[in-house]
């Protein structure tokens, strides 16, 4: 009687027309242990399904990682960037000024050197005047 019902259920089970409750009955039947020989081959199937359902996810559920991390990282990056641009600019300006001053000093030095030499040149020219004056004297005495 009972077996009859199980066999009918099995038939419908393989046509996939059983309900969840009926499949539960089948699983219970094959878990019970006293299975007739001709149904034995089916047993592992149902036992396996029951066993497979026992498998658990044992790892910890890790929550709140990398939350907002990226946001803060981007804020920090922007701050660093702005500082970099600001101070970088100031530094390069300072450098430029220093260079300009150096160039100015060098030019000044060079110019004063030229001036000094020039002066020496004009001193020598003064002798030329002496020569002229003497020449005049000689001409006039003639």
């Amino acid at each position: 009687m009972e077996l009859d019902r199980i066999e009918k259920l099995l038939e419908r089970y393989f046509e996939a027309t059983t309900t969840v409750a009926e499949e539960e009955t089948l699983r219970d039947f094959f878990a019970s242990g006293n299975i007739p020989v001709h149904l034995k081959p089916y047993a592992p199937m149902f036992q396996y399904f029951s066993e497979a359902k026992e498998e658990r996810y044992t790892k910890q559920v890790p929550l709140k990682p990398r939350k907002k991390y990226l946001e803060w990282a981007s804020v920090a990056a922007v701050v660093v960037l702005i500082f970099g641009i600001y101070f970088g600019n100031a530094y390069s300006k300072q450098q430029e000024q220093r260079k300009a001053e150096y160039a100015y000093q060098q030019t000044k030095k060079a110019l004063s050197l030229v001036a000094a030499n020039f002066e020496r040149g004009t001193e020598k020219v003064a002798y030329l005047k002496e020569f002229e004056a003497t020449k005049e004297k000689i001409y006039n005495e003639k």
């Binding site: 393989f14 996939a16 027309t17 081959p41 089916y42 592992p44 199937m45």
Partner: peptide, 20 residues
């Protein structure tokens, strides 16, 4: 789904019987 399920169950049965 019904068709796929029926096929799957039958395949499992067939292979189990073979093995048995």
């Amino acid at each position: 789904i019904r068709v796929a399920l029926s096929r799957a169950r039958k395949t499992v049965r067939e292979k189990l019987v073979q093995k048995h």
